[in-house]
Simulated scan of single mutants.
Amino acid sequence: MASGLTHEQAEALVQSHDPEHPANLICDLCRDFYKLGWVTGTGGGISIRKGEHVYLAPSGVQKERIKPEHIFVLPFAQSSLPKPGSQRDFLRIPSKEGLKESACTPLFWNAFTMRNAGACIHTHSQHAVMLTLLLPREADSFKISHQEMIKGVRLGGVGKTLRFFDTLEVPIIENTADEEDLTEGMAAAMEKFPDAPAILVRRHGVYVWGNTWEQAKTQAECLDYLFEIAVKMLLAKLPLVGDN
């Protein structure tokens, strides 16, 4: 559902010379994430909430080639909470033919509403995927401790930072055929694991959030490091938790 804004007002939402403007940041960050292998093949994405506006990368496009004019803008206050198949309220819809909002929209809203996050990042990191395959099939979470990079991760993604001796725990949910259908599983895991800064999706990737885009990015990088070293530790038959 489009807003009552004029074309000029809607376009002004994504036009800025400020490199910190969400429409510019999403493009820059997606290029950085592409180089890391996190958003290749059109997968993955990011959403930034600024005040009462939510900026959203489009779905099914080359993330390293996104431009500000491709960004969707939604009001945070929706007529109904975004869920699979629901209609969204839009402040701006890109004019380029074929663009559609990110399939991750209702999952991003989980982070915004349940954690009051300011940004949420979704990656298809191979480290995240491999970790979910190496852990026991019955495991509903990943745990690790005594790693320096844990200190870059926050309780619940938005609280105080963890300490070296703390145990980080990230829940794992099962993948679904359609991205939107992960919404309820993600929400349930966030309720069960209130201190978790992210959600791993088996055979798929990870969702990470933070108070700001900077914190979300920092945590995504720290977590990816921890996922990678955990994979190596598991292959070397080293314990993930404890003083190693």
Rank of each mutant, 00 (worst) to 15 (best):
143 K>I: 02
103 A>H: 10
220 A>K: 05
145 S>T: 07
172 I>A: 01
156 G>C: 05
32 D>E: 15
93 I>F: 02
26 I>K: 15
108 F>W: 10
150 I>A: 11
58 P>H: 14
9 Q>N: 08
28 D>G: 08
134 L>F: 03
21 H>R: 12
61 V>H: 03
181 D>W: 12
73 V>G: 00
211 N>Q: 03
181 D>I: 10
84 P>N: 12
68 P>E: 02
202 R>L: 07
241 V>Q: 07
126 Q>L: 14
203 R>Y: 13
204 H>D: 11
236 A>L: 11
112 F>C: 13
40 T>W: 03
47 S>F: 02
235 L>M: 10
142 F>H: 01
198 A>D: 06
23 A>I: 03
163 R>C: 06
207 Y>W: 07
44 G>L: 08
224 D>L: 05
16 S>C: 07
108 F>Q: 09
181 D>K: 15
225 Y>R: 08
202 R>M: 09
142 F>N: 02
215 Q>G: 04
138 E>G: 11
212 T>I: 03
170 V>A: 02
229 I>N: 10
219 Q>D: 11
111 A>D: 02
14 V>H: 11
11 E>S: 02
148 E>Y: 09
158 V>Y: 00
81 L>Y: 06
152 G>T: 09
144 I>V: 13
212 T>W: 00
240 L>S: 07
44 G>Y: 11
83 K>N: 12
105 T>R: 04
130 M>D: 12
126 Q>F: 12
83 K>A: 14
135 L>Y: 07
171 P>N: 08
218 T>M: 10
87 Q>T: 13
23 A>E: 08
101 E>M: 12
194 P>W: 11
69 E>I: 02
72 F>Y: 14
36 L>R: 12
194 P>R: 13
181 D>L: 15
120 C>G: 12
163 R>Q: 08
88 R>W: 15
79 S>M: 14
123 T>M: 14
120 C>W: 04
36 L>S: 04
168 L>E: 08
192 K>E: 09
224 D>Y: 03
35 K>V: 14
234 L>N: 04
220 A>E: 09
179 E>W: 05
5 L>Q: 09
193 F>A: 05
216 A>R: 01
77 A>H: 13
120 C>V: 15
31 R>G: 01
13 L>Q: 12
227 F>H: 02
207 Y>K: 05
54 V>F: 00
6 T>H: 06
82 P>I: 12
184 E>F: 07
59 S>H: 14
207 Y>I: 06
1 M>D: 11
191 E>S: 07
112 F>T: 13
77 A>G: 04
205 G>P: 11
108 F>G: 10
192 K>R: 12
63 K>N: 03
142 F>R: 01
112 F>D: 01
157 G>Y: 00
132 T>S: 11
150 I>M: 10
115 R>G: 00
167 T>L: 04
20 E>R: 15
207 Y>T: 06
229 I>Q: 09
155 L>V: 13
94 P>Y: 04
230 A>G: 02
185 G>I: 05
58 P>G: 13
201 V>T: 14
156 G>E: 08
53 H>Q: 13
94 P>G: 06
115 R>Y: 01
118 G>R: 00
155 L>S: 10
44 G>W: 10
54 V>Q: 00
3 S>L: 04
244 N>H: 14
27 C>D: 07
76 F>P: 04
141 S>T: 08
236 A>G: 03
166 D>T: 05
154 R>H: 00
15 Q>H: 13
166 D>L: 07
178 D>E: 09
